[in-house]
Design a protein around this nucleic acid. Structure first.
Length: 719
DNA sequence: CGTGGGCGGATTTTT
DNA sequence: TCCGCCCACG
């Protein structure tokens, strides 16, 4: 046996017991901040080093690409080897890998592409339109939900019963049509990746046997977030002899609404009655006060596996509660506290503002912008989801796979080339009649179309063909670059309104540089371009961490899961907002909201603030909310109410941003301020975006129109 | 065919 | 309030 002390030494007793658990299924109930990731990585290291298992025989599944990447690098550090042989990835990533390797057995075309949720919605809309169904009666989102949740449960249209309900019958029919359309186009959506991978194994015993022999150790992170098909897939793989090691926390299950089944944790104990259970309850993150508060809160949920976090550290400071007059007052309070924190030597990046829904970031952004305090909002539109990026990818996808109908639809007339709705309808009709792809229908459409449209269609097809030839055998970034130029996309965006178009061109350039630095993951052998396209579909592209500026972090509670911060503000603690109105009515929904609150509280290491606003402007109207019921579920003695509002800070118009100008990095850049520019003359500030050296202002000049200017170069003077 | 105005809808999010 | 989508118009 190799020396394994470095694997075991940093672990506490419970962690060590889990890491060294003997053969058989294992369930680790890991509370927030109890070293969950550490247990997983050390388990892998242990299995490799102490039990001599080859990394080749290990499969580890996570929920996000980020988590997978972190796990891989931690294992590499721990073992001092390259983790290349380990299969670590998301369920979707691993399913994708399997389908690439075994596309034939899975019944897929070799060059199948992945449909993201937006593509999927678009396709559903197309189907509805083709069927002449009213979108107000058949809501695309609901149909999408119907399809995905059935796939998540492993159900194909053929196995669904309509129960003599005409609505349901129609939904099932649409599901079947949607499947046919995907097959025709050679595309698979996210849920399909999982279901296909499941069916692949279920339908090929030899293949399954192969993987069962290969993967002797299967580890799963965030098990409470698995859905039915993922768990079914795991059970299929595991059979009887493989070691399944799952880690999860039922109290942190916050994705029920997208198919996650906390019940899988209980089911696990039923399905593997001999499973060993380990509890990790010692928390290394938060103060005793924070933990006690979180424990008390979550105790209001029924149906828990049960777990109480404790710490060997001190109680720390009380949890602080602030009742703001309105959302602006709330934001200003948070701002003042953060300034206090930094004045005492704290860093901004150590502070997180967490909220229930993205719209809440706005009030904070405005306040922080005005105060010139750098912040970063996580979430929002991701890189690969931006329209211009998706257009560019659609070109590449269509080049790779002419049958990719969604891509065809997307770009056939972008930039505009005279192929209007009517021509497209014709092509769609004939594709449907011939059960062929749009591409094939377009090829055959010459006669059916007018001469002008026919020429336009043919030249589009020729363009795609030509591009395919021109980019063959060139480096990936040149391929992307060439397609962007030759397709006219760049030109198209350059002609747009200056501000918007510029940003789009920049994003497209970013895509080229992403291509330049792209390295395919080991495994499946496929052309670089195709693997880049799959990567683009599977990776949201959130990871583009910008220069590590010292910024206050703002994000939703959901995206904060798995993170920790010395100082946490849980903002918007009002009934209706949090718990959210739409979850308030049923118990299950409410319990999930409570778990979300638990997740939020347990992000905090040293200081935790709960804040709410008595009056909040939302969707344009003012509402007067009650403090969140969750506040009352935290024991009073742990909470200190900050400055019970004796005097109210008036949020009046003139003093909207009442920061002394001398403190501001760029004085006078308030919204509505009058400024003078050397060349453009006088104007009014319409908006301010970003901060630090990247800040940009939009100014409406009297004679030169509206322009975006980089603050650092513009030399604007207040008038 | 491309643009602007009117209308409705507006958790949470990863893949 | 604000954003995205659809339709009507030029």
């Amino acid at each position: 046996m190799d020396d394994v002390s470095h694997i075991l030494a940093p672990l506490n007793e419970a962690q060590r017991a889990a890491v060294t658990a003997p053969a058989g299924p294992v369930l680790v109930l890991a509370g927030a901040g109890s070293g969950k990731t550490r247990v997983l990585t050390h388990r892998i290291a242990w299995v490799v080093q102490a039990e001599g298992v080859s990394p080749h025989g290990i499969l580890a599944v996570t929920f996000t690409n980020k988590a997978a990447g972190e796990m891989r690098s931690r294992i590499e550090q721990l073992l001092g080897i390259s983790g290349g042989a380990l299969w670590i990835g998301t369920f979707h990533g691993i399913a994708h890998r399997l389908l690439r390797l075994h596309w034939r057995e899975a019944g897929l075309p070799q060059s199948f592409q992945i449909l993201d949720s937006e593509d999927q919605l678009r396709l559903i809309r197309k189907l509805l339109k083709a069927e002449n169904l009213d979108e107000t009666r058949w809501i695309p989102r609901e149909i999408q939900w119907f399809i995905n949740s059935n796939k998540d449960e492993g159900r194909r249209p053929g196995s669904l019963k309509d129960g003599n309900d005409p609505t349901r019958r129609q939904l099932i029919r649409l599901y079947a049509e949607y499947e046919a359309a995907c097959a025709r186009a050679g595309v698979v959506d996210f849920a399909e990746l999982l279901l296909r991978a499941f069916e692949l194994w279920r339908g090929s015993p030899d293949l399954l046997a192969h993987y069962r022999r290969r993967f002797r150790h299967v580890l799963v992170d965030e098990f409470q977030d698995t859905n039915s098909i993922q768990y079914a897939w795991l059970k299929l793989l595991v059979g009887s002899e493989v070691h399944l090691f799952v880690v999860g926390d039922d109290d942190q299950s916050v994705y029920r609404w997208r198919g996650a089944r906390v019940e899988n944790m209980q089911d696990f104990r039923r399905d593997f009655p001999h499973a060993q259970l380990y509890r990790l309850e010692q928390n290394y993150r938060s103060t005793g006060t924070i933990l006690n508060g979180a424990n008390a809160l979550i105790a209001h949920n029924a149906a828990r596996l049960g777990k109480t976090l404790w710490t060997s550290g001190g109680m720390g400071e009380p949890i602080r509660l602030y009742a703001g007059f309105n959302e602006r007052d709330e934001a200003e309070f948070v701002l003042r506290r953060i300034e206090e924190w930094t004045r005492r030597g704290g860093q901004r990046r150590e502070v997180a503002i967490l909220y229930r829904s993205n719209a809440q970031s706005r009030a904070f952004e405005e306040t922080f912008l005005a105060a010139r305090v750098p912040y970063r909002v996580y979430g929002g539109l991701r890189f690969f989801e931006r329209a211009e990026i998706k257009d560019a990818l659609a070109y590449l996808r269509l080049i790779v796979n002419h049958r990719d109908d969604p891509s065809f639809e997307r770009i056939v007339n972008l930039p505009a080339r005279g192929i209007g709705a009517k021509s497209l309808d014709l092509i769609r009709e004939s594709a449907k009649g011939a059960r062929s792809s749009l591409w094939e229908a377009a090829e055959a459409s010459r006669e059916a179309l007018g001469p002008k449209a026919a020429a336009a269609v043919q030249s589009f097809l020729a363009l795609i063909e030509r591009l395919g030839g021109e980019i063959a055998d060139r480096p990936l970034n040149e391929q992307v670059d060439h397609v962007l130029e030759a397709s006219g996309l760049i030109e198209h965006h350059k002609r747009e309104k200056a501000d918007r178009g510029e940003a789009r061109v920049e994003n497209l350039e970013e895509l080229v540089s992403a291509a330049r630095s792209f390295e395919p993951e080991g495994g499946a052998e496929m052309p670089l371009l195709e693997s880049f396209l799959s990567h683009a579909a599977l990776e949201s592209g959130e990871g583009q961490a910008e220069a590590w500026e010292d910024c206050v972090q703002m994000m939703t509670l959901h995206s904060a899961k798995g993170l920790e911060f010395p100082v946490v503000f849980l903002a918007g603690m009002e009934d209706g907002l949090f718990p959210h109105q739409r979850s308030i009515t049923d118990l299950e929904g409410l319990e999930e909201e409570r778990r979300l609150c638990y997740v939020g509280m347990t992000r905090a290491m040293k200081q935790l603030y709960l804040t709410y606003a008595e009056q909040r402007r939302l969707h344009g109207t003012d509402s007067y909310g009650q403090p969140s019921r969750f506040i009352k579920e935290v024991p009073e003695e742990l909470v200190e109410e900050v400055r019970p509002r004796v005097h109210v800070s008036r949020p009046m118009s003139a003093g909207r941003f009442h920061r002394p100008e001398s403190e501001a990095a760029a004085p006078g850049m308030r919204l509505g301020a009058r400024v003078r520019h050397g060349r453009f003359g006088e104007g009014v500030v319409l908006s301010v975006e970003g901060n630090g050296p990247h800040a940009r202002v939009q100014v409406s000049f009297e004679s030169q129109g509206t322009k975006w200017l980089m603050l650092q170069y513009a030399n604007l003077e207040p008038v």
